[in-house]
């Protein structure tokens, strides 16, 4: 497609979608007019919602149900396979390892981003150059995960002991500890943490921005009166600020946990799951595109959905409570 036709198409879609929607609503209203008022009131919300519901059905509901069906079929989707794909999830050691690592991601990525994000939001709140600090922390979120992984590849660089360490981490480590350099991504005691560190670096900015915004919403009088009553800085944080921030922290935590479960790019680019660093999302990719086992890949997808759903429910509940309050 040439550039001109691409631009024309983009313009047509930008203008055309609202026009089509208004056209649809106008038609619906025309169709509803002859009906009695009560029926009209009952039908109108559904008629107005219909386009969105159709889109959700086609692009969300249908694929989900289809995945569920595929997970009960064999590798080439040519026949039923019963529960054998789920038995694979139960029995296979590589699945267990991936699950363990994904849980580690959930705990460390969520905890790390929350702690660092909260600390930065609180500390930056007290200085005049807050904008500058937050910009620096947010900057990595603009870097793609793949690019971030490549950059961190240099940070984790390993040179044999006795040679100049070109990797930042090993340069600092060997200088401070006088110990031999560490192969961060290969050594089993460090590699998962190293990968998660990249994730934390890339996601903390997101947590910081939201927590910081919530912090600004805490009424100044509250903090002030706590201070007047003689609360120390720590007590103010513990008994005033944190309770006020709790709903925000819960929502941020659930979003972080979900992104931790979906972690793929960093692992794929840096280790591809080797050296016991595999995670569920990478396993899904492996089963789908490398092994072409649609059954197992779908079963992994179902597992991922099942694991994430409770977190989603928690998230929605917290948001609802927020609205009611």
């Amino acid at each position: 497609m040439t550039l001109t036709s691409s631009v024309l198409l983009a313009a047509a879609v930008t203008a055309g979608v609202p026009v089509a929607l208004f056209g649809y609503l106008w038609t619906v209203e025309k169709a509803l007019t002859p009906l009695p008022e009560r029926t009209r009131r009952r039908l109108r919300p559904w008629a107005w919602l219909a386009p969105a519901l159709v889109l959700v059905g086609v692009f969300l509901l249908y694929p989900m149900l289809n995945t569920l069906v595929l997970s009960l079929r064999n590798s080439g989707s040519t026949g039923w396979a019963g529960l054998s794909n789920f038995r694979y999830l139960l029995d296979d050691a590589t699945v267990h390892a991936a699950l363990r690592n994904s849980l580690l991601w959930v705990v460390l990525l969520t905890g790390g981003c929350l702690l660092v994000g909260l600390a930065i939001a609180l500390l930056a709140d007290r200085v005049r150059y807050e904008v500058a600090v937050k910009s620096i922390v947010v900057l990595p979120t603009a870097v793609s995960f793949v690019a971030g992984a490549v950059i961190w590849g240099f940070m984790f660089n390993y040179q044999p002991a006795g040679f100049p360490q070109t990797g930042t981490l090993n340069a600092i480590w060997t200088e401070l500890s006088r110990q031999p350099p560490v192969a961060w991504l290969v050594d089993n005691s460090t590699n998962n943490a190293a990968l998660i560190l990249v994730g934390v670096w890339m996601t903390t900015g997101f947590a910081t921005v939201i927590i910081s915004a919530a912090l600004k919403m805490v009424p100044a009088e509250l903090v002030e009166s706590a201070r007047i009553d003689g609360a120390s800085g720590w007590q103010t944080l513990r008994y005033v600020l944190l309770p006020q921030l709790r709903p925000t922290l819960t929502v941020v935590a659930t979003l972080l946990a979900i992104s931790a479960f979906k972690a793929f790019d960093v692992v794929y680019v840096m280790t591809n799951g080797n050296y016991n660093t595999d995670v569920i999302a990478n396993l899904l990719y492996q089963q789908l595109f490398i092994n072409q086992d649609y059954g197992r890949a779908s079963a992994v997808a179902v597992l991922l959905t099942v694991v994430i759903s409770p977190i989603l429910v928690l998230n929605i509940r917290t948001l609802r409570r927020e609205w009611r309050a």
Binding site: N157, Y158, Q159, P160, F163, A183, L185, V186
Partner: peptide, 11 residues
């Protein structure tokens, strides 16, 4: 091999 097996894996 230069750097031993660890270098083989990391280089």
């Amino acid at each position: 091999v230069f750097g031993g097996p660890t270098s083989v894996l990391t280089t």
